[in-house]
Design a protein around this nucleic acid. Sequence first.
DNA 1: CTGGATCCCCTATGATACTG
DNA 2: CAGTATCATAGGGGATCCAG
Lengths: 124, 124
Amino acid sequence: MSERKITSTNYRNQAYLEEKCTLNELLDLVSKRWFSDVLFCIEEGNNRFKLIKDDLKYISDTILSDRLKLLEKYGLITRTDFDEIPPKVEYALTDKGEELSGLLDLMCQFSETIIGDLKGAVKA
Amino acid sequence: MSERKITSTNYRNQAYLEEKCTLNELLDLVSKRWFSDVLFCIEEGNNRFKLIKDDLKYISDTILSDRLKLLEKYGLITRTDFDEIPPKVEYALTDKGEELSGLLDLMCQFSETIIGDLKGAVKA
DNA sequence: CTGGATCCCCTATGATACTG
DNA sequence: CAGTATCATAGGGGATCCAG
């Protein structure tokens, strides 16, 4: 039973949790670094690759590209390729994207309470 | 030479995002594997280490212990040590824990829509 | 301009063994 | 029972170079 020890366990646990509740899959998605930030960034009107990249100043091309693909894959944004040279692509939130944004706003408010309390406790 | 190349960038980006919005810190927390499951598990009345471990059948001691500490650190659960031999410790959700649970329920409903759509599209 | 292809490193997960 | 200590590993994040 100990072949591919870590791999198989890792995979099994992940699959187990995703099957248990789709929440786990969503959490894995939105908690990927820069993911929520890219979502908010597009919501605020930064609809081009470069605009997002400039706004989130430390994000790398690789990651931004990956996050945009994921957002599109899950139907949270639309991608419009104008087939021009040089390339021009525009992104926009879908209704689901807006909905997720709203949920994340709620989470954000909650996070300020919980994390503010933690840091306040240390300081004060 | 570039000491801690990745580390410094990695750390800087993480810090940047956490400073940008506490949401990122909360997402990092709740998306840790088994985290939300442990929370729900306690909410359902599994208030002992072993009960949780039995309910989440693949979780390891190490991880469960870590998640419980995190939950307590952020004020989401309380830990009551009865100082007995053999050890007896009980866990319970705080108000904040309940609140987070409610938020995660919302996320969970949303996740079923978004992920269901994704899988349905492939299948149907 | 919008990415794709590679390569590398760090961190979270978890197996295992042990303790009060 | 309820953990702690140690060690191994896979995958995510990111740097760099390249292409249409």
